[in-house]
Structure formats: structure tokens, C-alpha cells
Design a binder for these strands. Structure first.
Lengths: 189, 189
DNA sequence: GTGCAATGTCAAACATATTAAACACCAGCC
DNA sequence: GGCTGGTGTTTAATATGTTTGACATTGCAC
């Protein structure tokens, strides 16, 4: 926890443009309680902190995990043509959110021509991968398990497991995938 | 927070095979404190709960975010019908990877009927959100910026920014989205 | 200027959490 | 049987958090 409870509470409260008394009223505590907490003169009990946060509302989990506001991003929208093709043979990968700084999630639109095969890549990166088929059918092998996924079906596995995608059908297959980017790894695209 | 503080603490303590007295000793509190907390007969102060967790060690953020371990999922594959509808009015959300333990990414297939509107939700959760439209068109507003996204286009923004999805067209719209569940909480056991 | 409503702070009374020291229980062992 | 060392629980005293009711300050209206 990088921030004090006092600081966090004040940030939250001001973010919602509430006075100590307003928040106190919603939370069912007195303004003094909030004043003292924000001055770090007391360490509130869980029950009272929860009451206070219920007035926002915000969960204890959110309260302790939220981070300071990030720098503003110019535009959150991304055109189709803005997505660079970064794939290989028979496979086209389009990155959604190209140029985003501090990206944590890599979402890809993956297009597999008939016969396309990623090959059995071995583990590599730590993390998790999730995805769903939006068009066509794709055979997915994870570790020792293999299955053909149709549109609407999905997968979720640890990236450390060896995995392989193959389009065995005659139709182009398309899936949307998302994976975690390790915090400090250099941009791989 | 689905679990009581009392339950969470007991789980954490037993996971680490510590007795109340052992943990108390490491944490610099008395065994009574821990006993009473676990019986839910007191609501500990943040400071004392922090002291207790330091004896594990575990951060407050982890403490409030960790999930109950679910039974291990044998298969990484997910059927279409396995995805539970967890959405609201006019909007259907299908979770991909239902039942995955230690999930870090939440991928959703979001189906918006014509006229569907998520409403202008304010900030709430920490994290990042990315997505792409696979069918139809959807109007997305992030903070102060608004745009209609067509199939193939995407978005990427911080979850703390207020955002709203609306289907203004006559066709059903569908997007695949992914968001981080808890950015910093590492699996501690 | 006065009045008024809002803000955040403070001190003493009160409520609650924490401690210290006991308690009861159980398992193993002599 | 009695002892020992471990467990979690309870109780009275103490420490800490919370409320009550005040205070000082600010900004706005009259």
C-alpha cells in the first residue's frame, strides 16, 4: 500500500465532490470520524471504514487497490486501419490499442486462413491468455488437451502451457484474444 | 467483498499453517486479538489488521481482493452455453472463462440490443479496459470523448474514467472486451 | 456591515477494540 | 492417574476509536 488510509479517503471523497459532512451523512457516521481519519489521527475500524466507503460507494478492495490517476490519453478509440498487422504466415494479428502507453492488456484480433498453424510454441512468457472465436472454427491445443472451438466458444489458460492454434476448416477463422503483459517487459511489437 | 474479515483472516492464517498465537507473535499483537477477530466479535482497526497481516505477510489490498480458491478446472475450453449471462437490461454479458481460478483477465462477449444503454456509470473499478466491435455499431463515450465504433474498430481506456456504451443503430451490436481484475494483487499462495 | 449556511477542526463523554491473565480442552507421554 | 505443551476462548482492565456538541473560518446573500 503506497498511500495512507487518510490520503486515500480524502482523494476518494474529493473525487466525488463530497464534503466531510455529506459523506458522513450518507455513510451513517459523524463528520468528526471522517475528519479524524483524514488527519490520520485515528486508524478506523474496518466496520467504520466500510460504512464510510459504502457512502461513496466503494468496496474495501477497491479502496486499497486503486492507484493514483494516470496521465490523460489523447484518444481511447482505435480505427481498424490503425491496427498494425503483426502476424506471420497464414495468420494475421491485429493489435487493439496500438500506441497505448502503460498497456497491461494485449488484445488481438487474430485471423487464421484455412490451413494456418501457429506451430507448437513452447511456454515463453508468464501470464494468462483468454479468447473467444467470433468466426469460423479453430483447433486449439493446450498442453495435452485438444479441441475444436466454434464461434461463441472460448478458452482460458496459463501462458506458460505450450499451446497451438490451427485452422483445419475451409473457412477463415477469427478470434479475439487478450493476454496480460508482464509489467516491465519491453514492448514486443 | 463477499467474505467477512473474520473468515478471510482465518483462511489466510490456516493457509499458512499458523496458530493464533504464532501469528500473534509475528504480528506483535496478542492471541486474543486474533481470536476475537476470527469470531467476528470485533471489527479490528485498520492499523491492527495491518499489523496482523504484516505477520503473514500480506498487504491490505491483497487481503481484500483475494478470492476463494475454486475447484480446479480441468479444461481450458469453454462452451458457448457455459458462459453465464450476467448482464442487465438490453445488454447481455457472457463471461469467457467462467470458473477459472486465479483469473486475472475478465473477457466478456457483450451483446447490445438496439437502444441498449449502459448509462453513464461513474469511475468505480481500477484497471484498464480494451475491446473491439465484432458486429454492428456501438457508441462509446469515455470521459468527454464520444465516438461510434464499427466492426473491427476498438478502444482502450482506464477503467477509472466514466464510460458509457449505447447502441444507437437498428442492428444488434456485439463487442468482445477484456479488463484486468486486480492489477497488483499477486497470488500469495 | 449583519446574517446565515456551509466548511473543517477540536475536547470531553461514550463506545469499542486490545491487552493481560486466566480458563477449558485435547493429545501425547511418563 | 498426573503432567506437559499445544490449541482456541473468555473476562476485566486498559487503550483506542467514535460521537456529541461545541468552536473558528469561509463564502454568499441581503
Amino acid at each position: 500500500m503506497s498511500l495512507e488510509v487518510s490520503t486515500r479517503l480524502k482523494l476518494v471523497r474529493e473525487k466525488h465532490a463530497l464534503s466531510q459532512r455529506e459523506l458522513a451523512k450518507r455513510a451513517g457516521v459523524t463528520n468528526s470520524t471522517i475528519s479524524l481519519i483524514e488527519q490520520n489521527r485515528v486508524s478506523p475500524s474496518i466496520s467504520s471504514l466500510k460504512k464510510v466507503l459504502d457512502g461513496v460507494p466503494m468496496s474495501l478492495a477497491e479502496f486499497f487497490t486503486f492507484d493514483i490517476a494516470e496521465p490523460v490519453r489523447p484518444s481511447p478509440f482505435f480505427d481498424k486501419e490503425q491496427m498494425p498487422d503483426i502476424g506471420g504466415e497464414g495468420v494475421k494479428l491485429f493489435l487493439i490499442g496500438h500506441g497505448v502507453q502503460n498497456r497491461h492488456i494485449t488484445m488481438l484480433r487474430e485471423v487464421y486462413e484455412p490451413g494456418a498453424d501457429t506451430g507448437a510454441e513452447m511456454l515463453s512468457h508468464v501470464g494468462q491468455e483468454v479468447g473467444t472465436v467470433v468466426r469460423g472454427e479453430i483447433e486449439l491445443t493446450v498442453d495435452e488437451q485438444t479441441r475444436v472451438l466454434k464461434a461463441g466458444e472460448g478458452y482460458y489458460f496459463e501462458s506458460t502451457l505450450p499451446h497451438r492454434f490451427r485452422n483445419l476448416g475451409k473457412e477463415t477463422a477469427e478470434i479475439i484474444s487478450a493476454s496480460l503483459v508482464s509489467p516491465n517487459a519491453p514492448p514486443s511489437f
